[in-house]
Design a protein around this nucleic acid. Structure first.
Lengths: 244, 244
DNA sequence: ATAATAGTGTCTGTAAGACATTATGTG
DNA sequence: CACATAATGTCTTACAGACACTATTAT
């Protein structure tokens, strides 16, 4: 944040800073938020994509998102949460920032668009609760395996690649996996969430031991039979154990 | 990124998406970049701040930054690098994104400003090379200990707190410390960079062993006497050893 | 020689990987 | 009972913390 902005009578903003920025030719970018809505389905990390109905990238699939409502003084994360709600009907989920993509001025060929990308991790229940709102003009959405989603609109392929990396490197100390499973979960379910994000198998017997070192969990006196075999104990996530 | 933008004849952008966004009342935010220019000085992490010459926050200290030049199709990171160069004369330094701050619509009381924050880590040489450009209208800049910098303009105090956290948690696998020391450095210098960022002392004898696990370094046949005692071997950073 | 800093070697406790065994449910 | 999955126990290996000792320079 450097210098000076003046607001003219019409509410048009001019820039006038100490380095003689030419305010008269001043143009602004558009700010959007994208929200990568993720779930785990059949041991694959999936993201909810929406089919574009207009050019550019007509009929291509894109990450959910939209414009930040500057008129209504909407916060960036609020906009991301609103988009999440509009697409899925889900509220009260933790939404995190991935990053801002605004290096290529032609990432949207129409105009300069700067997008700040957030992501939300849904439990199976939250993902299934997805509401098709009546009267909605039928935005077509679909879950895609995050790895196979190529040929997307804009730079959304790059964004999803970055998201995968971010989830993988953050899962050690951030409770990503806990958000992707049900509120009460089994060790198997949590381990499969880890395996999905890490892209490798973990040793089942060691898994509870290793998790308990970094996270505080509550082992309930409830059990759930998942087909044959001994029913598994249900677990509740309490909190992360801070490493500092 | 959801739907539709139309450009009118005058180049004024209208929004017209599938959810009946009211294009006529459409207003845009201003995009700025801030760059946290960091160095280590006397075992303290410092950031270069600039004294504001105009309201709001007149005479308060702020992180370096400025507007993204949308007219010139300037990329976000290019803008951050330009600001870095304008303040310090330094080029060719790796600049990373910290995050985007745009939740509070009143973070700039004049208008809606969304800022994307980057950071650069300078070696002592780069930090000292700081150029006061002639004909510059004397922007007053000064190095501050990052911890003690309170009462800053805007939400810059929060940003620096976030940066500290980001550096601390990332230093294990990202070569932050190597950028904060000279190209050829001693184990002591590198360890002090780690200690500064981590905020605790490390065991000197174990330090080379632990670094070599995560990073590839070249131990040179050059030595440098730093006062009395045995001259220390100079080291060269090669690359990080990927953990995946 | 003495002080000061650099660098090596080794011991120990903890964490992580790997596997064997026991426990407890379903068909 | 046979089978499948959960849960526990233990062995081994790698890493991290801590400290003792040696090496090399300036004064």
């Amino acid at each position: 944040m450097s210098d000076e902005i003046k607001l003219s009578a019409e509410g048009k903003d001019l820039l006038e800073d100490a380095s003689n920025y030419d305010g008269s030719k001043y143009r602004k970018a558009l700010n959007t938020v994208d929200i990568c809505i993720c779930r785990i389905y059949e041991k694959k990390l999936q993201v909810l994509l929406v089919k574009r109905k207009y050019p550019p990238f007509k009929d291509k699939w894109a990450i959910c998102g939209g414009f930040v409502d500057i008129n209504k003084d909407e916060g960036m994360m609020d906009a991301a949460k609103r988009e999440l709600f509009e697409e899925t009907g889900v509220k009260g989920v933790s939404v995190r920032q991935l990053g801002t993509y605004g290096d290529d001025p032609k990432r949207d060929p129409r105009d300069r668009v700067i997008t700040t990308v957030y992501f939300a991790l849904l439990s199976p229940e939250q993902a299934d609760a997805q509401i098709i709102k009546p009267g909605d003009d039928a935005r077509e959405t679909k879950w895609f395996n995050i790895s196979k989603s190529s040929d997307l609109a804009f730079d959304h392929g790059i964004i999803l690649r970055d998201l995968k990396k971010h989830l993988r490197s953050g899962i050690q100390y951030e409770p990503f996996a806990f958000e992707l499973v049900s509120k009460k979960f089994t060790w198997l379910q949590l381990r499969e969430a880890y395996e999905t994000i890490l892209g490798k198998e973990l040793i089942a017997q060691n898994f509870p031991r290793d998790i308990k070192r970094r996270f505080l969990v509550e082992e309930l006196e409830e059990f759930k039979a998942e087909g044959r075999g001994k029913p598994a104990r249900l677990i509740n996530f309490k909190k992360a154990i801070s490493m500092f």
